[in-house]
Write a protein that binds this DNA or RNA. Sequence first.
DNA 1: TTATTTTGATTTTATTTTGCAACTGGTTTT
DNA 2: AAAACCAGTTGCAAAATAAAATCAAAATAA
Lengths: 141, 141
Amino acid sequence: MGKAKKYRSNCLQYLALDVFGDKWTLLIIRDMIIEGKKYFREFLKSKEKIASNILASRLQAMEEEGIIHKKNDPQHKQKIIYLLTEKGIDLFPILMENARWSMKYQPVDREDAKKAQAILDGGPEAIQAIMEKLKKEHLTE
Amino acid sequence: MGKAKKYRSNCLQYLALDVFGDKWTLLIIRDMIIEGKKYFREFLKSKEKIASNILASRLQAMEEEGIIHKKNDPQHKQKIIYLLTEKGIDLFPILMENARWSMKYQPVDREDAKKAQAILDGGPEAIQAIMEKLKKEHLTE
DNA sequence: TTATTTTGATTTTATTTTGCAACTGGTTTT
DNA sequence: AAAACCAGTTGCAAAATAAAATCAAAATAA
């Protein structure tokens, strides 16, 4: 029997927001993609100071939604490596659209804006290139 | 003296999510753009059944953020017309990226998907065209 | 003109989510 | 062996969200 999740609606927007329409999920994705973070303790050190219990519950939810997956660190028996799935990597274009909007209307950090603008100037090909690189790093078996 | 809002960070993502990174804002924007809704009672009738107090507080917050603006209905003195600002219309590309992602990974309604795909097939020009049309409808003074 | 309905909310009460700080059992480093 | 580090967990308070009932002003119907 399928474990069909019951949704409030099957609208395109609702089904997207159901996965990442909260305060933290996209920030964690940002930390993974932009900052290259992989470990629990690294996520804790983000600028926005997420609490450890919130982080733990978010990571679990993200894994259940299939946008990240866990791996054991072969070096450290204690450490867990958090990696993106393809479904998670495909959130990158959304991050870039958010960035485009923020740069137009919000008091963003100038350094961040420069980096983002460089990618946007490269067009969809630049975004695709970054996603291909992410796939090599994160989908490695 | 400026009323500078204090942010937890000036990151591109955080500053975007601070405005629309909640459960309802983008759904209300969707109702305005896709369904053409303009009145309080219309928003109440959305598929996801937002409560009236939540709707009221969301609309107020959205107005304070400058993504919507209110107008009095000349026909009905009681009615208030909710319209998008340019800042709000510029959220449309984000909705379209969300739609693209949902179509790839979520059990979306087929009719909704068809309409969205038609727009995406038109490329950035199709999205721009819709935004120009929205400007004519919503920014009319 | 009176009664009813409709408007955009507000109030009340209950539930859920978030946030903070301390702590855990174990591992690695020094 | 001691200290630092690891991914979480626990308990409790505060804040956000939700459902239902209610509101006064205005429009409509009788």
